[in-house]
Design a protein around this nucleic acid. Structure first.
Lengths: 221, 221
DNA sequence: TTAAAATTAAGTAAAAATACTTAGTTTTGT
DNA sequence: ACAAAACTAAGTATTTTTACTTAATTTTAA
C-alpha cells in the first residue's frame, strides 16, 4: 500500500488514461489523482499530496513549467517529472531551472518511463539522454548572455524588494490578477493585495501601466 | 481469441504504450502490432492485417491522413480510427474525406475511446461530438459565399472588431485604464467601459491576461 | 434613402480593487 | 536566542470595475 503515489497532469484525456493504465499495471505505483490543466494540477495537489507529479508541458490555463515552479517553491517533498510530448527543446532548460526532477522527451519508451519514475521517486534525477546535449548547448549560450548582463547599465532604486515581492511583481507583470496570484502561491487574496499595494508604494506608481514601465526600466524582473 | 485486432500508429512511444496498456486491460481487444510513423504503419499492415488501425494524424514520414487514404484505397476490410492529439481542426474534414471510420479529438475519455473502437470494429462510424460542430462550421463557411447571402440572420463570426474597438484594444494592451483611455479619446469613461466590455465578450475572455494573450494570438493589433 | 451597424453614454446591482491599519507568525541575521 | 524583517491575513471604508440593459445619436453601406 505504500507504493509510489502519482498525480497525472495532461490535457489529453486519452494520454492520461493511457499512462494511467500503463502505470497501474505495475505493482507499487498508484495514480491517486489527475488534472487536465495546470491550475487544476495545483488544486489537486493541495488535497492529494503525491510522491511524484507527472506533468505535460503544454497545458491550458497554466503550463507545466509554471506548475513545476510552483511546486518547487511550495512543496519540497513532491517530485516532478516533466513530459514533453512534442519536440519542445526550448523548454528543457526552463523546466530544469524550475526544479524539475526529471524530463522525458516524447520518444521515451515504457521501460525508460518506468525507470525514470522509480529513480525520481527514490530521490534521484532522470533526464533523457537527448537532453544532456540540449543542456550543454544552452549552457554555452546562457553563459554568454549572463555575462553580458554585468555590463548593462541598470538604474539603482532607493529601495529594495523582498523575495516575495519580486515573485509577485513577476506575476503582476504577467497581468495576472490578485485572485490568480493568490491561488498560484497558495496565499490568501488579501495577502496578494497587500504585496501588490506595497509594491506600488515602493515604486511610487499608481496604476498597472506605470508599474510595468517602472519595473522594466529598473529591470526588476 | 477472435477479439478486435488493432494496430497502433503513433510516433510517441509513451502514448503508444499507454494506449496499448489501456486496450489490453480490456477483454476482446488485441494490439497485434505497432508503428511509429506513417510508412511503417503501411508496412506493418501488409503482414499484420488488423480489424482497426488507430492512427495519429501528426507523424513523421507520412501523416495519418495519407495512411488512411492508402488503406481506404487498398483494403476494404480494415477500419481506421484517427486520433488527433492536438486541436487540428483543419484535418478533421480531410480525414473524413479520406475515408476514416472514426475521429477522436484529444479530449476523448477512455470510455469514449473504447466506445468508438467497438463501434468502428462492428462496422459503424464514430466521430466525437465536438467534430460535428467542426464539420458544420466547415460546411457553412465553405458554402457561405453562395448561400448565406439570402439568410438575413447570419450569426456574428467568432469575432470581428470595429475600428473603435481595435483602437481601444490597442490602448488596453498598453495597459491603460478606462479613465485614461476615455481622456485620450475624448469620450466618457462609461463608453470606454462599454467598449472594453464588448471586446472581452467578443474575444470570450474574462480578464486582462487572457485578453492580451488572445489579442496577440490572433494578431488583432 | 433607409435600414443596419457603430458609437456614444447613462442606470443599476454586484463584485472587486484600493488604500490603509492592525496584528499574528515565520524567517533571518547576528 | 532575540530582535528585525518578512510574510501572512483580517477589518473597514471608499472607489472602481464588471456585467449588463436601455437608448439616443451618428455613420455606413446597399
Amino acid at each position: 500500500m505504500n507504493g509510489i503515489k502519482v498525480v497525472l497532469a495532461d490535457d489529453h484525456a486519452l494520454v492520461r488514461d493511457g499512462i494511467k493504465a500503463l502505470l497501474e499495471d505495475q505493482a507499487g505505483i498508484d495514480v491517486i489523482a489527475e488534472a487536465s490543466d495546470g491550475k487544476e494540477a495545483l488544486q489537486v495537489i493541495k488535497t492529494n499530496k503525491p510522491d511524484v507529479l507527472i506533468v505535460d508541458i503544454r497545458m491550458p490555463e497554466m503550463n507545466g513549467i509554471e506548475v513545476v515552479k510552483n511546486i518547487t517553491a511550495n512543496y519540497n517533498d513532491i517530485k516532478t517529472l516533466v513530459l514533453s510530448m512534442h519536440d519542445s527543446e526550448e523548454y528543457v532548460v526552463q523546466s530544469i531551472q524550475s526544479g524539475a526532477d526529471g524530463y522525458l522527451l516524447k520518444g521515451a519508451s515504457k521501460e525508460e518511463f518506468l525507470k525514470a519514475l522509480n529513480k525520481i521517486a527514490s530521490g534521484g534525477k532522470y533526464f533523457t539522454g537527448d537532453v544532456s546535449a540540449i543542456i550543454m548547448n544552452n549552457f554555452v549560450n546562457g553563459a554568454s548572455a549572463a555575462s553580458l548582463k554585468q555590463n548593462a547599465e541598470v538604474k539603482q532604486l532607493p529601495f529594495k524588494l523582498t523575495k516575495r515581492e519580486k515573485q509577485i511583481l513577476g506575476l503582476v507583470l504577467e497581468l495576472k490578477n490578485n485572485k490568480d496570484i493568490a491561488e498560484e502561491l497558495n496565499i490568501s487574496k488579501r495577502t496578494a493585495e497587500v504585496h501588490r499595494f506595497n509594491l506600488m508604494k515602493k515604486l511610487e506608481v499608481s496604476n498597472l501601466k506605470e508599474l510595468t514601465e517602472k519595473a522594466k526600466a529598473y529591470q526588476l524582473v
